[in-house]
Simulated assay, not measured.
Amino acid sequence: MASLPAPTPWTGPLPPARPPAGMAVHHLPTGTYETRAALAVRGGSFRDKRPFAASAVLVRHPKGDLLIDAGFGAGVATHVGMLPRFVRAPYEAGRTVGEQLDAAGYDRGGLKGVLLTHAHWDHVSGLDSLRDVPMWMNADERQYAAEDPDGKVFRHVSRGHDVHEYGFENRPYLGFDSSYDVHGDGSVVVVHAGGHTTGSVIVFVTVPSGDRYAFIGDLTWQIDGIRRRAERPWLLRKLADSDPEQVRQDLLRVIALDGLVRIVPAHDLGSYAAIPLLVPEGAAWPS
């Protein structure tokens, strides 16, 4: 299948960032579900079954921590049952974000909220184990989640959660027109990429080592979309994306950054490999 045209690589300066000492990112895997590559990216094989990650990322910062997405929750079986039959897939659930925070001895008083890349079920299910934690959303995504049929699980799990609504400033960031600097130091910057859903976002994170991450949500489901410049298959673009053309333009913007930032599609399990787990493998879980 033909790839998208290669964009001009980003040659401008990287935006200034002053990540404070003690800032860190951690991966909190909560499970996987199975999808064939042919349904994930153009040119994928039906024989290639991919374990799609359902994960959260904890961004620790002295001014307050944030979770990026919430993964699977305790009620994931109920949430899957709320989906149309044709989109249900075999899944394996692991420890919820809430269970992992508790196992790590994490003080939830330092958690400012869950910053959602968008409001689809596999990004919000875990809100059911994060009671009293605010949801961070922009106005476009808040409206999408309230009205779109694909917001059904969100509307179920978000009951009782406060919403911290943030907005974007007219400050370009790495090719995107508008951005929101969470802490004012350039360490966590959110850009509007409203094609998959109307309020979808990408979260750029810079840590003290100088490493930069781009948590791109569902701009593409697999890293193949970046490395092979491949969109979702035509039918999936029609079914899954609010604005397929906007997804294409934003995908090209991110492809232009490959090599300068670590790009992490939300469902690409391998892309999390360089991010340390909050609870190390083999650690004892509280009974």
Rank of each mutant, 00 (worst) to 15 (best):
Q143P: 03
R229F: 10
M135F: 14
R36T: 12
L174T: 07
H164S: 08
V201A: 04
I255P: 03
S242D: 11
L116Y: 04
G113N: 06
T117M: 07
R131L: 09
E34N: 14
R142S: 14
H123L: 15
L251P: 05
L28R: 04
P172M: 01
V189Y: 01
R232L: 14
M137Q: 07
P233K: 08
V264R: 02
R262G: 03
H61L: 06
G195F: 05
G225W: 09
A145Y: 10
P244R: 02
P62I: 09
T35N: 11
F86C: 04
D69S: 14
W285T: 13
V41M: 08
Q249T: 03
A37K: 12
I68M: 06
E99M: 12
R18N: 10
L219S: 03
R18H: 13
D148I: 00
R60H: 08
L260C: 01
R212H: 12
P208S: 00
G94K: 08
G195P: 09
I255A: 09
H120Q: 12
H27G: 03
V76M: 09
G259L: 05
D148N: 11
L4N: 01
S178Y: 12
L101T: 08
Y106G: 02
V97W: 05
H27D: 10
D181P: 01
Q222M: 15
F72E: 02
V25H: 12
Y33R: 02
V261C: 11
A54Q: 07
S55Q: 08
D65R: 10
I226P: 06
E165F: 08
T96P: 09
G44Y: 10
N170I: 03
S271C: 11
G22T: 07
E99A: 15
L28F: 09
L101C: 09
A273N: 14
A193K: 05
L239T: 15
G75L: 00
R229L: 12
E99S: 07
P244Q: 02
H26I: 05
G186C: 02
V57F: 06
P19C: 01
G151S: 12
D65Q: 10
R108C: 01
V59H: 14
H26Y: 15
R212S: 09
G75R: 09
V191G: 02
Y91P: 07
R42A: 07
G113A: 10
G31L: 04
L174F: 07
T35G: 02
G194V: 07
G160Q: 01
D150E: 12
R108N: 04
H118K: 06
P15V: 01
I223C: 07
V41H: 13
P51A: 13
T8Y: 03
D177A: 15
I223S: 13
V76I: 09
D211I: 10
W121S: 05
A6T: 15
